[in-house]
Computed example of a mutant assay.
Amino acid sequence: MLKDEQLLSLDVAASQLGVETKDLRSYLRKHRPKGAVQVPNKPGGNWHLHPSLLQQLQFAGAPGIDAPLLPIDDATLDALEWSEWIPFEQSAEQAPVLPGVYVVRERGQEQSPPLYIGQAGERNGKGLRGRLKVYSSGMGATSGLGKYAMNLALADSAWLAQFVHEAEAGRPESVERMARRAIDRLNLEVRWVPCVHRKAAMLLEAALIKKHSSTLWNGSSDNEQDSSEK
């Protein structure tokens, strides 16, 4: 391990994965995932892995790596490296263009429980940022977080009355703006964990939903998520 950067050498990482060093090196050369560092950064440089990348490869695997997969337990979830919590309205610009898992909660209270957990795959290079932009643009009113926010808003007669008054005053609101305002009324904040690929994001999402199901809008058995992004 490189002490200053907390990186694992290629040999150590391969040993912990239970794979040949050459197979892991081949994967890193081809895919160059986040968390892999080549020192020096040129052909022939030595590869090193951040512990978070090794962890995801251990439970999700990767193309060309025939390693035994480990279950995701509480220790794995507790070791996840989350981003800082940020207001929802900033998330579409600050989220990485990588696959990953995101968690939403009410803003303003440190101990607020998670309300929604979702994931994003590669999305043609847009990743988490692309998924969150769907919500911030108001285009996601019938799926995932946008759907839950809209259903809650439609049950609020005072909120609906605002749109009636605006329409009567000659200022009708668009569907997209209504969807965005449905999210804004909840005063949410977001954080995320980037993932090495979509499979890792899906596995983490499922494990996190199971752990926090009692407080989640999408935590009941009736709302189990399929393989699509949410």
Score class of each variant (00 low, 15 high):
Met202Ser: 09
Cys195Gln: 08
Gly45Lys: 08
Ser221Ile: 07
Glu93Cys: 01
Pro172Lys: 11
Leu203Gln: 13
Trp192Met: 08
Arg32Lys: 15
Glu93Gln: 09
Asp73Gln: 12
Asn187Ile: 12
Arg25Val: 01
Asp74Gly: 11
Arg181Pro: 04
Ala182Lys: 01
Met1Asn: 04
Val19His: 06
Glu224Lys: 06
Asp222Thr: 00
Glu89Arg: 01
Pro172Gln: 03
Leu98Phe: 12
Leu28Tyr: 13
Lys211Thr: 14
Gly146Lys: 02
Lys133Trp: 08
Ala141Asp: 09
Gly100Arg: 09
Ala155Met: 11
Val190Gln: 04
Ala207Met: 11
Gly100Trp: 05
Pro114Asn: 04
Met178Ser: 00
Pro99Asp: 01
Trp217Asn: 01
Arg181Val: 02
Arg198Cys: 02
Pro114Trp: 14
Pro114Ser: 06
Gln55Trp: 08
Leu132Gln: 01
Asp222Cys: 00
Gly130Met: 00
Pro99Leu: 04
Gly118Gln: 02
Glu168Phe: 07
Pro114Glu: 05
Leu69Pro: 03
Pro71Arg: 11
Gln6Lys: 07
Asn41Pro: 15
Ala167Gln: 15
Val103Pro: 00
Lys30Arg: 15
Met1Gln: 06
Lys199Asn: 02
Leu57Cys: 10
Pro113Arg: 05
Trp47Gln: 07
Ser83Met: 05
Gln55Ile: 09
Trp82Cys: 03
Ser137Lys: 08
Glu229His: 05
Val19Ser: 12
Lys3Ala: 08
Ala67Asp: 11
Met150Arg: 07
Glu166His: 08
Gly144Asn: 05
Leu77Gly: 07
Val97Asp: 13
Leu80Glu: 09
Glu173Trp: 02
Ser112Ala: 14
Asp11Thr: 11
Ser83Ile: 03
Ser157Leu: 14
Arg123Met: 10
Gly121Asp: 04
Gly100Phe: 05
Met1Arg: 04
Met150Phe: 06
Gln58Tyr: 08
Asn124Ala: 12
Leu204Pro: 05
Pro43Asn: 02
Ala158Asp: 15
Leu17Tyr: 07
Glu189Val: 05
Ser9Lys: 05
Tyr148Arg: 10
Ala179Met: 09
Ser15Glu: 13
Arg29Met: 04
Leu208Gln: 11
Val190Arg: 01
Ser174Tyr: 04
Gly44Met: 07
Val193Gly: 02
Asp222Ile: 00
Glu176Gln: 07
Glu224Pro: 00
Gly18Phe: 06
His50Tyr: 12
Lys42Val: 11
Leu17Phe: 07
Tyr27Ile: 03
Tyr135His: 14
Ala13Val: 06
Glu20Trp: 09
Gly138Cys: 04
Leu188Glu: 03
Ile65Glu: 01
Leu160His: 13
Ala141Glu: 10
Ser143Ile: 01
Arg185Ala: 15
Ala200Ser: 14
Ala13Glu: 07
Trp217Tyr: 09
Val101Leu: 05
Gly64Asn: 10
Lys133Leu: 13
Asp222His: 06
Met1Ala: 07
Gly18Gln: 12
Asp73Pro: 10
Ala206Arg: 14
Gln225Asp: 01
Ile86Arg: 03
Glu110Gln: 05
Ser221Thr: 06
Glu166Cys: 05
Ala200Ile: 10
Leu2His: 11
Val37Lys: 13
Leu145Met: 10
Ser26Met: 13
Lys42Gln: 14
Tyr27Thr: 04
Pro113Gln: 03
Ser174Thr: 13
Gly35Trp: 14
Ile72Trp: 15
Asn187Gln: 14
Asp11Tyr: 01
Leu28Trp: 14
Gln56Trp: 13
Ser213Leu: 01
Val19Met: 07
Gln225Gly: 07
Arg185Cys: 15
Gln56Tyr: 14
Ser214Cys: 00
